[in-house]
Design a binder for these strands. Structure first.
Length: 550
RNA sequence: GGCCAGUUGGUGAAGUGGCUUAACACACUGCCCUUUCACGGCAGCAUACACGGGUCCGAAUCCCGUACUGGUCACCA
């Protein structure tokens, strides 16, 4: 029996030949050097930090080169799929402003002429190529049961041999086509294995974009191509899809480097040109016990990309942080070019760190503070409002009610060369500005006036200030010189230098007097510029807040 | 265990044989600025090139070995 005949028995449903698909999905007509790259997750529902890093680069490089970035869903394993899993991924990408040029664009829609982009819909394509390999004598049906495979493994372990189905362990490799056909006709279940032409004692070389040259022994395992459910294994799907979708660059986690020999061999037996590979270090985290481990979706909330959305950490900040992990020279570049963004930066694979980097939330928050500080007040307002509408209705309502006022609050010490960096996320802004809103300035409030504790003294400072000095129309300099006058009149030192030299000659300084006014109006001794706050609050509110102490 | 990779201060990292008495950033400490808090400036911290051999006039940088860490060895991706 010929291979052709066997192939027909194995794949009765295959209608086309491989040439059909080669023509259906022709070479892309793109400018020289254009990169075609893809994000190819399982539909597990959400994107992990490490994947997001990959997706960021995968989308950036095509953008830089005039190429294509597409989304492919790898759902050949039912166990990894969750309901609405695709939508979750698309939402996460959208949240991070990662634009999909092609591929899966929603739970029900796909776009582009290289599809379908969901692997479970590509069964016929995989079968066509598997059939082709059978015809060529490069693949065969394997009837071994799980038990038999386990048996082989046990024996190999016992004899300290390499584990796997290869050489003489690939029993079904030695069946005749007649035997194969007979067993198939009998209805025996089978899978399709590659008849590996590899030699373990020969070398195969990968030129990885980030890791450089890596040498491995050739693959000699008869790996599974098609599982008993008819779907392909990752290795086979990867090779077929990335070839047919004309992918030029494959970025993925370093957990894949050890299967590169399999992939290279598959490309070779199928007559395809392999893509460029870039294997990225995994994102790590330090455990409580001090050991490093991969950032885990299950254990670490900060691993899920949705966490940042909920925390109101600007997506730009997360991307900025990821970029600093991705390219070591990015941080310095961004510092030099504060007005530019990630899109203006040239990404370079060679500048990637090989080892997995530690995920540093602290540093991310620092970047977030810098990022927010560079925003205009109206942008802070819009972004905070967007966040609040989803996670803090009450605050959202207040923000909408007092729009201009809120923008003015956010504008304190902003839009200048050295803006304040006190907002680390949109979710923490409220705790910085709550006292500016009467709605929040109620109930049990706790005050700490610092050095000046005497209620009578506090009353005196506040009432004197209000009666003799406060004038809504004062500019900042006038305002402060009045505070100084007030201090002097009540016996406090108005000159800080002088006070620092003779702290014992005075009951306190202008700083302490300011603190009393500050705390009386806000309850907090840590606020932005007092002058601005008083001005925004206005006379009426100030009087009301002082009342408590009179 | 086999195969592959990685190892620079608390963290991220620069560095590709002499320019390195090893950048920079985060964190921390102190000082300055300053009406508070931030910001900013300056200084400091951390005795940082895993260890042992080699090559070389010269090594964090090249070679070999050891240790440790990670990855992988599925009809998972």
């Amino acid at each position: 029996m010929t291979n052709q005949e066997l192939a027909d028995i194995m794949f009765p449903d295959v209608k086309h030949d491989v040439d059909y698909y080669e023509k259906l999905y022709p070479e892309r007509n793109l400018p020289e050097g254009a990169v075609v790259s893809r994000f190819a997750p399982s539909p597990t529902g959400f994107v992990h930090m490490g994947s997001l890093l990959a997706a960021l680069i995968e989308s950036k490089v095509p953008k830089e080169t005039g190429g294509v970035f597409y989304l492919r869903i790898e759902d050949t394993d039912g166990k990894r799929s969750v309901e609405n899993g695709i939508q979750g991924i698309i939402d996460d990408l959208k949240n991070f402003d990662i634009e999909i040029d092609e591929g899966v664009i929603s739970e029900t829609e796909q776009k582009g002429s290289y599809g379908p982009y969901i692997q479970s819909e590509r069964k016929e394509i995989y079968h066509t190529y598997a059939k082709h390999l059978v015809e060529e004598g490069l693949a065969y049906p394997c009837f071994c049961s799980q038990e038999e495979i386990d048996e082989v493994r046990k024996m190999q372990e016992l004899n300290k041999e390499r584990i796997g189905i290869y050489g003489s362990y690939a029993k079904c490799r030695f069946l005749t086509n007649e035997e194969r056909a007979a067993r198939i006709k009998k209805g025996e279940p089978y899978i399709v294995r590659l008849k590996s032409p590899g030699d373990f004692y020969k070398k195969v070389v990968l030129n990885d974009l980030v890791r450089g040259k890596i040498e491995f022994p050739e693959n000699d395992m008869d790996v599974v191509l098609i599982k008993s459910d008819g779907l392909p294994l990752y290795h086979f799907a990867h090779v077929i899809d990335d070839h047919l979708m004309r992918t030029t660059h494959v970025l993925r986690g370093e957990e894949w480097v050890s299967s590169v020999p399999i992939h290279l061999q598959l490309f070779q037996v199928l007559g395809f040109t392999p893509p460029q590979y870039a294997h990225l270090g995994v994102v790590m985290k330090i455990d409580e016990d001090g050991t490093r481990r991969k950032l885990s979706k299950r254990k670490d909330p900060e691993a899920a990309v949705s966490y940042y959305h909920e925390q109101g950490i600007p997506v730009e900040a997360v991307k900025l942080y990821l970029m600093t992990i991705a390219n070591s020279n990015f941080e310095g570049w961004w510092d030099q070019n504060p007005t530019l963004g990630i899109d203006d930066f040239h990404f370079d694979f060679k500048k990637m760190s090989l080892s997995g980097s530690l995920f540093d939330l602290e540093k991310l928050l620092n970047i977030s503070r810098s990022y927010i500080s560079r925003l205009r007040a109206s942008e802070v307002y819009e972004k905070t409002l967007t966040w609040a509408k989803e996670f803090d209705f009450e605050f959202a309502h207040i923000l909408e009610k007092y729009k201009d006022y809120s923008i003015a609050i956010f504008n304190i010490e902003r839009e200048q060369k050295k803006p304040r960096k006190d907002f680390e996320s949109f979710s923490t802004i409220k705790k910085n500005v709550w006292y500016m809103y009467d709605e929040y300035f109620t109930g049990e409030l706790t005050y700490d006036f610092g050095k000046i504790q005497n209620p009578e003294e506090i009353r005196k400072i506040l009432s004197t200030y209000l009666e003799d000095y406060y004038d809504e129309c004062d500019d900042k300099d006038t305002w402060f010189s009045k505070i100084k006058e007030l201090s002097t009149r009540l016996g406090y030192c108005s000159d800080m230098k002088e006070y620092k030299q003779n702290p014992d000659s005075y009951p306190g300084s202008v700083a302490d007097v300011s603190t009393v006014i500050r705390v009386a109006t806000t309850t907090s001794s840590m606020t932005p510029d007092l002058y601005e706050i008083l001005k925004l609050l206005g006379k009426e509110r100030i009087q009301k807040r002082f009342q408590k102490w009179m």
